[in-house]
Design a protein around this nucleic acid. Sequence first.
DNA 1: ACTGGTACTTAGCAACACCGAATAGCTAGG
DNA 2: CCTAGCTATTCGGTGTTGCTAAGTACCAGT
Lengths: 109, 109
Amino acid sequence: MGKQMTEMLKGTLEGVVLAILSARPAYGYEITAWLRDQGFSDIAEGTIYALLVRVEQRGLVDVEKVPSEKGPPRKVYSLNAQGREYLEEFWRTWSFLAERLEQLRKGGN
Amino acid sequence: MGKQMTEMLKGTLEGVVLAILSARPAYGYEITAWLRDQGFSDIAEGTIYALLVRVEQRGLVDVEKVPSEKGPPRKVYSLNAQGREYLEEFWRTWSFLAERLEQLRKGGN
DNA sequence: ACTGGTACTTAGCAACACCGAATAGCTAGG
DNA sequence: CCTAGCTATTCGGTGTTGCTAAGTACCAGT
């Protein structure tokens, strides 16, 4: 989409991915494809992988290597207890921000 | 609030400030104080000033130096035509993101 | 003179998303 | 066989952004 989206994704993309993982385990390629489907047309391939490495190192997700029929083995990520906590915190932060922005949109015009 | 908020503000803070300016001209110190009032308790002093310099250099705002009774002169910023366009684009980007996130919050749990 | 509130500036830092290229496994077509 | 193409992940370097921390400057009241 553009630069605005790129900047806006900082901080939220992580929440998006964790939210996806809270529904079901998934692997990088799958997540990227799903996001593109949802209209995040310009999310770079590498971005999701880097993000997944980050959340893994923070201990928010568990990883399992699963062989694939169609290529190299997949790294399947699933949200653990700590990740769920973190996700809740993310939603609180998001809610706060979203409320202020909606207020601004109404009032400020 | 925390690190999540810091990251989430990237990309949105700019829109917030422009939205404020779309309602009325304002200067940095005033904007910072107002934001703190609204609950953005930890927005750093310097952050807003740097942001204002940026949007000025991009030609989104006009500036006027106005003497203050209580200190050094104020730099009063007002949104210009280009800034309004940019703000609209911001709202579109924001809407897109907010919709996806709300959907995720409902579905993904 | 000194303190405290107002108002802005600057330099250096950390985190994040992007870009481009590389690596690696598997399948199907020529 | 081997090349092309899809699947799947990794890595190094870049630009933007907000934070930290310090500094400058102006004025009022004590």
